[in-house]
């Protein structure tokens, strides 16, 4: 870690002010990802603004939804009775992620913003366009396993590692952002992330001093909710493939479908074409097969990642089957 200053403001204004003081400042919530990367020399902020005592640690009821405070811990979010009952896919996704210790620390906003597990990103001795713009991508031609097959570019194949964000993507979550001037805006999670293109170091549409204050979940549009995660050991591992499904059935037809994926995309992945294909249709094996074809129509299967296509296909089919049974 490079030396840094540390501030623990008590109000959002002060936090934004602190952030504006240095171009290399960073907010710190749980720190489970940031401190990890700082120790490796991957990230080197000169100022940490601790957002843990700004009062964003509760889950508030909205008209028909909730607003999850930015620093609500992953474990508390998973445990919340409202989430367990109405948004169980989110509880499930959270509980499938990391370990109990990490979930006790990791925050809602931090989870959205966590960086990729690409081993080349984490290795300061090799080129990485995400870590050092323009330096090249050591992962290309390297050993790929936990990498993306959707949304990639010739500059970056890193996958977004979150489970929570996959469920939120399927739940049409809205990120609540306070800007440097104190103005609040919301941004759909579907719009929040950027595909890597030729600027893989810019991962979201946040502006420098923007502060995430919470995440809004609208009322769930489907009561059939499933999260499934496949990984290399039974627990405490990142997803090779995961899928979140939120669906509603009516008179034997799929009235609503929102499917999102982890481990496949450069961001928590949701493809409107998949949802559109399913919506209004009768559940069938053929339909689910086709959904997989649509999802993976433009998958880039680089060497080492070939397995993800059939795996994603099968996982999607299983999840859709479970959600429509």
């Amino acid at each position: 870690m490079r030396p840094f200053d540390y501030q623990r403001p008590a109000a959002p204004e002060a936090a934004c002010q602190g952030m504006s003081a240095s171009p290399h400042a960073a907010y710190i919530g749980g720190g489970t990802n940031l401190i990890d990367l700082m120790k490796l020399g991957v990230m080197a902020p000169d100022l940490l603004v601790d957002v843990n005592r700004l009062g964003f640690d509760t889950i508030k009821d909205l008209d028909d939804g909730v607003e999850i405070g930015a620093t609500v811990r992953n474990s508390d979010l998973a445990d919340d009775p409202r989430i367990r009952v109405r948004w169980p896919v989110l509880s499930r996704a959270l509980l499938a992620g990391a370990s109990a210790q990490l979930r006790n620390k990791a925050t809602t906003a931090g989870n959205l913003l966590q960086r990729t597990r690409c081993p080349y990103f984490q290795d300061i001795d090799v080129p990485c366009n995400k870590r050092k713009p323009g330096s090249g991508c050591a992962a290309l031609g390297g050993e790929l396993r936990n990498h993306a097959i959707l949304g990639t570019s010739e500059h970056c194949v890193a996958a977004h590692p979150s489970d929570m964000a996959v469920a939120m993507q399927a739940l049409d979550a809205q990120v609540v952002i306070r800007d440097a001037d104190g103005q609040t805006r919301t941004m759909g999670l579907d719009h929040f992330y950027r595909t890597p293109g030729d600027t893989p170091h810019i991962e979201t549409r946040l502006n420098p001093a923007d502060l995430i204050t919470g995440v809004r979940l609208p009322a769930p549009l489907g009561d059939r909710q499933v999260y499934r995660k496949v990984r290399d050991r039974a627990s405490y591992a990142f997803a090779l493939v995961s899928a979140a499904a939120v669906m509603q059935l009516k008179e034997g037809r799929i009235e609503y479908a929102a499917i999102a994926f982890g481990g496949l995309g450069t961001q928590p992945w949701r493809d409107p074409k998949v949802d559109a294909l399913l919506t209004g249709a009768r559940p069938s094996e053929a339909l689910f097969e086709k959904a997989g074809d649509v999802l993976l129509r433009s998958a880039e299967l680089r060497e080492g990642l070939e397995f993800k296509k059939p795996l994603a296909h099968r996982v999607l089919k299983a999840v859709l089957t479970e959600a429509t049974q």
Partner: peptide, 16 residues
């Protein structure tokens, strides 16, 4: 060694 940490080198965990 690409997977040179305990997150990517999969030692069995309790649940395994």
């Amino acid at each position: 060694v690409v997977n040179r940490d305990l997150a990517e080198y999969n030692v069995p965990v309790h649940a395994d």
